[in-house]
């Protein structure tokens, strides 16, 4: 009896919450917002060195958000590796000798790599960018992993950790380089903004793919255990 009562109570609470939220959205939607940000954005778009507005916002106007967000991603990667069991990648149970998957792989992997490259390049003037390209690259890695192709660089070691932090480091170095040059942190020198952004995007793609793939590969958990503080270790 208590069980259903509790569910009912939670349901009522959530319903009320949704109702209030919808009502508030409804009232907010009536009045126009005072600051017209998109119009302000289009004026400054040409100074951002990139044509596509979303990439401009992501990598130039609000680049600090992206920097911290990549940091968040690296933290998830670190946590994943720290609990990883895979000493070696030669896990037999992952190796599939299924010929259909093998054939599929031979077709799909190059296609997905091209798609990732396109997405990365298109980022500057059409929808696309580092995150989407990174995700597609990671998907390719997952496919290859399922196919049993050993990927040496995913073994928890210095190389993997370097790979995880590569994108983040390059972004950070570019950010601080301009600060040393006297402008604000994360400001791009006027002339070469576009090239810098492309470099950052490509390195970011690699790192994002590496992090997402490491999370998938390191999934099986190790038995390591640290004695709780104070208990007689």
């Amino acid at each position: 009896m208590i069980w259903t009562l509790r569910t009912l109570f939670i349901a009522v609470v959530c319903l009320a919450f949704t109702g209030v939220l919808a009502a508030s959205i409804w009232t907010i939607a009536d009045k126009p917002s005072p600051v017209n940000l998109p119009q302000l954005l289009s004026e400054n778009l040409d100074r951002s060195g990139v044509e596509h507005p979303v990439t401009a916002v992501l990598l130039n106007f609000r680049s600090y958000d992206t920097l911290l967000e990549i940091g968040v991603l690296v933290i998830a990667g670190i946590a994943g590796i720290s609990m990883a069991k895979t000493a070696t990648l030669e896990d037999p149970e992952l190796r599939t000798s299924d010929s259909l998957l093998y054939a599929l792989q031979r077709w799909f992997v190059p296609l997905m790599l091209v798609l990732a490259g396109y997405l990365l390049w298109a980022g500057s003037d059409r929808p696309g960018g580092a995150f989407q390209a990174g995700a597609v690259l990671a998907a390719t890695g997952v496919l290859m992993r399922l196919g049993g192709i050993p990927m040496e660089f995913l073994r928890p070691g210095r190389l993997l950790r370097l790979g995880l932090a590569l994108g983040f480091t390059v972004f950070l170095l570019v950010a601080v380089a301009s600060a040393i040059g006297g402008e604000a942190f994360l400001a791009y020198p006027p002339g070469i903004t576009k090239t810098l952004i492309v470099i950052i995007e490509s390195v970011l793609t690699l790192s994002i793919a590496m992090v997402l793939l490491a999370l998938f590969v390191s999934a099986p958990v190790n038995d390591a255990e640290d004695s709780e503080e104070g208990s007689s270790s």
Partner: peptide
């Protein structure tokens, strides 16, 4: 100072990762 304040912790996070 501002650049140093924002840069140092992130840089050291990467350094200690290696």
């Amino acid at each position: 100072l501002m650049a140093g304040l924002l840069f140092t912790p992130l840089a050291w996070a990467v350094l200690t990762l290696l």
